[in-house]
Each structure stands twice: as C-alpha cells, then as structure tokens.
Amino acid sequence: MDIIVCIKQVPDTASLHTLKINPKTNTLMRDTAPAIINPFDENAIEEGIRLKEKYAGEVTVLSMGPPQVEKALRDALAMGADNAILLSDRSFAGADTLATSYTLAEAIKKIGKFDLILFGKQAIDGDTAQVGPGVAECLGLPQITYVRKIEIENGKLRAERTLEDSFELVEAELPAVITVTKEINTPRYPSLKGIMKSKKAQITIWSLKEMSIDSDRVGLEGSSTQVIRIFTPEMRSKGEILQGTSEDVVDTLINKLRERKVL
C-alpha cells in the first residue's frame, strides 16, 4: 500500500500567546514564531506510517514551499516516512488554495503510483481546509474529510468522518483522498536511528521545469484570489476585575450576572 502524505510547514501561531500591536503603526509585533510541521499533518504522517507498517508499502511525504521546508520533510523522514519530495520554485510563491491544489495534484500524477493520499484537516496558518478537497478534485478521486479512524478491508477503505454533532461511517474505493483530525492517533517521536537516517536522506526537489506544468496555473499567477488588505483584528475591550475574598467575588459575580439578565 503506497501512501502519499501532503504536508505544510507553518509558523507556530498557537505559540503566539499574546497579541502585541505596535501602537504607532497598528501592525502585529511578532514574537519569532518557529517553523513547524502543521500539527494536523503530523497526524497524517503518523497514520501513513501505521498503515504502511500494517499493509507494507512506502510512505512519500510531499510539500511545496521554499528550500527551508526541507527541515519539515526531514522531520517526517525521521518519524518513518520513506521518501520526501519538495516542490520548490520561485514561481510557486503566493499560491492560493486553487493554485496549490493544482501544483500538488500534478506532482502526485508525476509520482504515479499510490493507493491513498493523506492530509491534515487544515493548516494552522491559513486554516482554509481547502487543499485536500482541491487535490481530490484535480485528480478526480473520492474524498473523505475530517476523518478520525481509517480501516482497510478487501481493498476498500472505511473511514469515520467527524461532523458537528455526529459521525459518519463512509466507504470508498482506493485510491482516495483523506483529511485527518487530531483524534485519529498520537504522532510518534522520531527514534534516534530515524533522526540519523533522515539527516543523510536524499530529498527530491522538483521545480516548475522538472514538473513540466502550466506556469499560468501556479503561484500568484495561477491564483484566483488576491489579498488586498491585512490588518489587526479588533479585540473587545477589557471589563472589570472583581475584588475581595472568594465568597465576596462569587456573590458579586452572581449579582452582576443577574443584573445583566444573563442568569
């Protein structure tokens, strides 16, 4: 069973604990956010490795981005992925989800041999959740999103898909595209051996030329959407801190909530 896991390197925005605004310019002051593998993609990598361990085959991690993304791919290799491919070309920069989906799908066609494509449910920087379904569409494959459990039986895939208030048990023929939630597994830590191996591993890099694809459909040029403005969100204003002993503050709180007719 050959599996392709699409991953994204993201700034660890969740580590930004406080929002600091430059009062003069009203722009975001950034604590240096470290670059990490998108957390949901770690679950996708883990699931790929587990399926490989069960059914044999190879796990290929695929990403698009600048050369620095090699670090994320090496981390995935250290966890136990077998191959890594990075789509890197200046013309890929500024891609929206449509252009990204096209580029990844073309790379997957070039890889050629696969039974399953895994994604994290969304990336924590863009939070769009659009690239998994976008790739599935470009390849004409079935998609199952927000999956918390995967089983393979007689060449068919069964997945538990998480909805707002229920779960669906969905069946699909392989190959298929799956996006996973955090509940599907707990990603492993890389072994020492894995880390040593990943350091020496060869990472395949494909540029626009090597992929021989339509340059009008990648990067900023291939994007249908354009960002025209970036700004800092307005936060609501600060209220009051209730003072006194625990007894006092709890009584005050109940009274205030009743006055506001919240209770």
Partner: peptide, 13 residues
Amino acid sequence: PAFGGNIMATIIS
C-alpha cells in the same frame, strides 16, 4: 482571520 486569528485579511476574486 488568518494565522490563528492573529491577523485579518481582506480577499477578492
């Protein structure tokens, strides 16, 4: 919102 809600972006098509 983007980047975990740290920034807002206005987008057109």
